[in-house]
Amino acid sequence: MPDVPLDVVERLRAICLALPEAYEENAWTGVRWCVRKRTFAHVLTIDETGPDAYARFIATEGEVTVVTFRAPGDELEAFVQAGPPYFVARWGRDVVGLELRDDTDWDELAELLTDSFCVLAPHKLVARVQLPGSPPGPA
């Protein structure tokens, strides 16, 4: 499998590690970010030899970098309707993928990854989350 571009990992790292008690580790391929041993974001680069579980959702040929994350149940249908560059994975009830492209909206992606963290994190950690674009809460 091709390596994930370092600039992509660094951008995702900045978003994910800003969340309380989030940590990073190497995944079976690519890099993932977890909270309490649960993966809330995973980035990998695939090509035509990559796993069918990803490749069948991606229309682009050649190398493609994909980030997967969790979505609250009420948002899944929106991702189904959105279509590319989004896809709803079939290996988890709430896993969504996004093909990272030159026109990816990184502010929106930060919100999606924060939501993903909130889906999996304990309530006491979610209460400490600063949502992207919202004013800071009381100290």
Score class of each variant (00 low, 15 high):
Gly50Cys: 06
Gly50Val: 03
Arg36Val: 12
Val31His: 13
Pro72Ala: 10
Ala55Leu: 10
Leu44Gln: 03
Trp28His: 15
Arg90Ala: 11
Val64Gly: 04
Thr49Ala: 14
Arg36Ile: 06
Phe87Ala: 06
Ile46Thr: 15
Thr45Lys: 09
Ala78Met: 06
Trp28Tyr: 15
Thr39Asp: 13
Arg38Gln: 15
Arg36Cys: 14
Asp52Thr: 08
Asp47Glu: 14
Phe57Met: 01
Phe87Ile: 09
Thr29Ser: 15
Cys34Val: 12
Leu44Met: 11
Ala89Arg: 00
Gly62Arg: 04
Asp47Arg: 11
Ile58Ser: 11
Asp52Tyr: 03
Pro51Asn: 10
Ala55Trp: 02
Val80Ala: 07
Leu76Phe: 02
Ala55Met: 02
Glu63Leu: 02
Val95Ser: 01
Val43Glu: 02
Glu75Lys: 03
Ala41Ser: 09
Phe79Cys: 10
Ala89Lys: 00
Asp74His: 11
Ala55Ser: 12
Ala78Trp: 04
Val43Ala: 15
Glu61Tyr: 07
His42Trp: 14
Thr68Gln: 08
Thr49Ile: 03
Glu61Ala: 12
Trp28Lys: 14
Ala55Val: 05
Ala82Trp: 07
Val31Thr: 15
Ala41Met: 08
Val67Leu: 03
Glu48Tyr: 03
Glu75Asn: 07
Val67Gly: 04
Leu44Tyr: 00
Asp52His: 06
Gln81Val: 03
Glu63Gln: 14
Thr60Met: 06
Val80Asp: 12
Lys37Trp: 14
Pro51Cys: 01
Arg38Val: 05
Arg32Val: 05
Ala27Ile: 04
Val35Gln: 12
Phe87Tyr: 10
Ile58Gly: 12
Glu77Gln: 13
Phe87Pro: 10
Phe69Val: 02
Asp47Ala: 14
Glu77Cys: 00
Val31Asp: 09
Pro85Leu: 02
Arg56Leu: 01
Arg70Leu: 00
Glu77Tyr: 07
Ala53Phe: 09
Glu77Lys: 06
Gly92Ala: 05
Val95Phe: 02
Arg36Trp: 11
Thr60Arg: 11
Val80Glu: 14
Gly92Leu: 05
Trp28Phe: 15
Tyr86Asn: 08
Thr68Cys: 11
Gly83Met: 08
Gly73Ile: 02
Trp33Thr: 10
Cys34Glu: 13
Pro85Trp: 01
Phe57Thr: 01
Val95Tyr: 01
Gly30Glu: 11
Ala71Lys: 02
Asp74Thr: 00
Val88His: 01
Asp47Trp: 06
Val67Asp: 00
Glu77Met: 03
Ile58Trp: 02
Val66Ala: 04
Thr68Ala: 07
Phe57Leu: 01
Gly30Ile: 09
Gly92Cys: 04
Glu48Arg: 13
Val66Ser: 04
Gln81Asn: 10
Tyr54Asp: 06
Glu61Phe: 09
Phe57Glu: 05
Gly73Phe: 06
Glu48Cys: 08
Trp33Met: 06
Arg90Lys: 07
Arg90Ile: 00
Glu48Trp: 05
Val31Tyr: 12
Val31Gln: 14
Glu48His: 13
Pro72His: 10
Phe69Leu: 07
Glu61Met: 07
Cys34His: 05
Val31Lys: 12
